[in-house]
């Protein structure tokens, strides 16, 4: 059996702020970004607690023994510590043994999928039983910056293994397309990231399309051979345009397009979309997944569902889970995200 996904768990915080509320405060339009509202972590949540909750759901829904996890990679651009790993806190909070490889990953929004690649490689090298790759963010955005309309909170955890009766989706192939293209960054001690406006679109399409074409060329598949596709989704428009450029029908992307409903969860973005596809995919279907991280790079995956997916599913699908929500206004949003500096 090829290495692949043996389980997944998603966590999206309950609080939501509507984009229209942010528009009201700053008296400006979000400019038709295709996002209606975004998920907001509570004052007592951070990328670490989100990561634990996502992984815990995967453990419960897919009956995974935490003691079998031998690798934990947590990708985030909002790790709660600059020094002191999130991954070791996650391991202890899940009840693993002490025998696991662990490191925190950072590559803007693609650090979670990079963790999936590492777990996949470790599994193929037979160095681990189950690897856990998490993308988790409480994305930061400066008040009155364009990022504020979309920067959201959420986490996705993917468990990588190779037992025949456990794998719900085989990873057939993966590759990365990387270059030095600084479209979004945060310097040490800076509280919020900076970005280059429209140049980020140029960087996004260069890498997403570059990685997609690279994996198609390497494997010999045509874009229209896939049943589903999911791309990193900084807004509701870019993934649809990426699909259009590659010649993939819009309906194949819609199931994994979650950003319009919860905002851009950064490292969680592509992975939450992929989870939403796995929620409904039938056996023997083919999925193209391409993440994007500023700075810049894209990780592409070809994922094939197996017969196990009929019996092994998340108990609550992503699209159902995100219906549990509570709207807050901009003042409460500032309080929960600790942006009131006099406190």
């Amino acid at each position: 059996m090829t290495a692949g996904i043996v389980g997944y768990g998603i966590y999206v915080p309950k609080l939501r702020i509507k984009v229209s509320e942010i528009e009201r405060v700053w008296q400006k339009s979000s400019g038709g970004i295709g996002v209606n509202e975004k998920a907001v972590a509570s004052i007592d949540e951070d990328a670490c607690t989100l990561a634990v909750e996502a992984a815990r759901r995967g453990i419960e829904d897919f009956s995974i023994d935490p003691k079998r996890i031998n690798a934990i990679y947590v990708g985030s651009e909002s790790h709660p510590y600059a020094v002191n790993p999130t991954s070791s806190i996650v391991g202890d909070a899940l009840g693993t043994t002490n025998k696991y490889y662990a490191v925190d990953m950072e590559f803007a929004c693609k650090a979670g999928t990079a963790g999936m690649q590492v777990c996949y490689a470790l599994k193929k090298a037979r160095m681990i039983d189950i690897g856990l790759a998490i993308g988790s963010d409480t994305a930061q955005s400066k008040p009155n910056d364009a990022l504020e309309f979309t920067a959201a909170s959420g986490a996705a955890a993917f468990f990588i293994g190779d037992k025949k009766d456990e794998v719900i989706a085989e990873i057939e192939s993966t590759c990365s397309y990387t270059s030095d293209m600084p479209d979004f960054w945060r310097r040490p001690k800076a509280e919020f990231p900076e970005h280059t406006g429209r140049f980020t679109a140029e960087a996004y399409f260069k890498h997403v399309i570059g990685a997609a074409k690279m994996i198609l060329e390497e494997t010999g598949y045509r874009a229209d051979e896939f049943d589903y596709a999911v791309f990193h989704q900084p807004n509701g428009k870019f993934p649809l345009k990426a699909a259009s450029i590659l010649g993939i029908e819009t309906k194949k992307v819609e199931q994994g397009l979650i950003t319009p409903l919860i905002g851009n969860t950064y490292s969680g973005s592509t992975m939450i979309g992929l989870a939403s596809i796995l929620d409904i995919a039938k056996p023997k279907q083919k999925i193209l997944a391409v993440s994007y991280g500023s700075g810049a790079g894209s990780d592409a995956f070809i994922i094939n569902t197996t017969d196990n997916i009929s019996d092994r599913r998340a108990k609550v699908p992503v699209l159902e889970m995100i219906k549990e929500k509570e709207y807050i206004d901009y003042a409460l949003y500032l309080r929960h995200r600790r942006k009131i500096k006099s406190l």
Binding site: S42, D44, E45, D46, C48, T49, E53, R56, P80, A93
Partner: peptide
């Protein structure tokens, strides 16, 4: 049970995590 931050003494100290 959920896993949450319990508190932090200030911005330099360790963050306390636990159950809620």
């Amino acid at each position: 049970k959920v896993f949450r931050q319990i508190g932090e003494p200030d911005k330099y100290g360790t963050i306390t995590y636990g159950y809620k």
